[in-house]
Design a protein around this nucleic acid. Structure first.
Lengths: 226, 226
DNA sequence: GTAATTTGTTAGATTATTCTAACAAAATTG
DNA sequence: CAATTTTGTTAGAATAATCTAACAAATTAC
């Protein structure tokens, strides 16, 4: 007798679902150790929480196997991510925050249970498709439209690209980008690439010659335009 | 050796502080049973939580005596109420919600730890002094400026009053007021008062003769203007 | 293909918040 | 003021989320 309830997830459970969603690879599988690292808790903690989440129907788990979100788990996770990204966009567009300030606040507001509140944000912003860091905002049904960009690090000398999104949105990285006046939509021309450390010299408005380390260029998602 | 830490209060503890603040009478004392009723938990639960809150320095407690918030407890509570009321005002003024929709949402957002977020709301609204139900918004230091109004129920026939605030902001009551087009700032003239059930007949713009029960007139806070 | 390493599990304990049952102190009431 | 009622306390248990210690399974590495 399987116990599938689909009750409201607790704040903690919501965080596990979100991490599971973000860690799920092509096969949709996530290891206990990965999840433990992501959640910053011990493996036994994850082990018991995973049993919990399975009992509630959010995921599939078998001893010694990686876990997989059920369709319901995926939807639930996507809807939490939707609240997070809508909030980030609202904070930037309607409240004047910088893109480096919004993650921590959204991390808390994503757990608010008030559909009207998020619907109103969405409406006030005209149903945005992307958050301030270029990540797609899942729709009301938890559907997420995948876009695939390349990282700047994979581009070749001479190419012209448009900065579209980031693979990492830590405050420190965003502050680094601010210091170089690098924001989404900027057109970058790749001047050269150092084969020793993979650092790149790029050119963009107001910055004729800016050097970016591989660590940075790996985190910049771009659309090649020439 | 007294253990006074003043750590961050948990969400549950914040709710106890808020209730304590709201229940505190002139003497500032609150009984365990009152608090249990307000918080909708059993007395033993309150008993143990009160010991907790004392250990953290938020209140003074002695066996079989009513509890009293310390100055720190009062400030903490007032700051939570500040977040609640700022949020309600923001939802009404900046997001277009009705005054009857905002309590439940603010009840959740009040627990967000993000000073910048509330400061920005405050700034965007030009530092409002009252929330949408006429209750004062405590300042950043947790100071609350008391205003004292009379209830409509205490007014006499012939008086003209201005509707300034409410003693109760339940959705049902607010929806009742909406149905009679009664909103803050409305000027009411007391036409008559029924001595049998204390119901009152009042007159205001668009409503030449509206009857209000004692239950209603007791919940309307007014400023007598004539 | 054993041995070593990594990954995952169980067992048992801890903290926060809650409960019910039983009892004790305080307040109320004739 | 003694009896009753109300209010408050203790004891003991439950649930959620976490931990460490010990062990077991799976994987990786010679």
């Amino acid at each position: 007798m399987t116990t599938k309830s689909f009750d409201m997830a607790s704040q903690t459970e919501e965080n596990y679902l979100k991490s599971l969603f973000n860690l799920a690879n092509e096969a949709g599988e996530v290891n206990i150790s990965e999840l433990a690292q992501q959640m910053q808790v011990s493996m036994p903690t994850v082990n018991s929480m995973v049993k919990n989440l399975q009992k509630s129907g959010w995921l599939i788990y078998e001893k010694y196997k990686p876990v997989t979100l059920t369709p319901e788990g995926q939807k639930e996770a996507a809807l939490i991510i939707r609240k997070h990204r809508l909030t980030e966009m609202f904070l930037v567009n309607k409240m004047g925050f910088g893109w480096e300030e919004v993650h921590e606040i959204a991390e808390q507001i994503e757990h608010i249970h008030a559909p009207k509140f998020f619907d109103r944000m969405d409406e006030m912003m005209g149903h945005p498709l992307l958050d301030p860091h270029g990540s797609p905002i899942p729709d009301k049904f938890g559907r997420i439209q995948e876009v695939n960009y390349t990282t700047l690090s994979k581009c070749k000398t001479g190419q012209i690209v448009n900065l579209a999104a980031l693979t990492n949105s830590s405050t420190e990285f965003l502050e680094f980008l601010n210091s170089r006046e690098l924001s989404l939509g900027k057109e970058l021309k790749i001047i050269s690439k150092e084969s020793y450390d993979q650092s790149m010299v790029v050119n963009y408005e107001g910055h004729p010659s800016e050097t970016l380390s591989e660590k940075v260029s790996d985190r910049l998602l771009v659309r090649v335009i020439g």
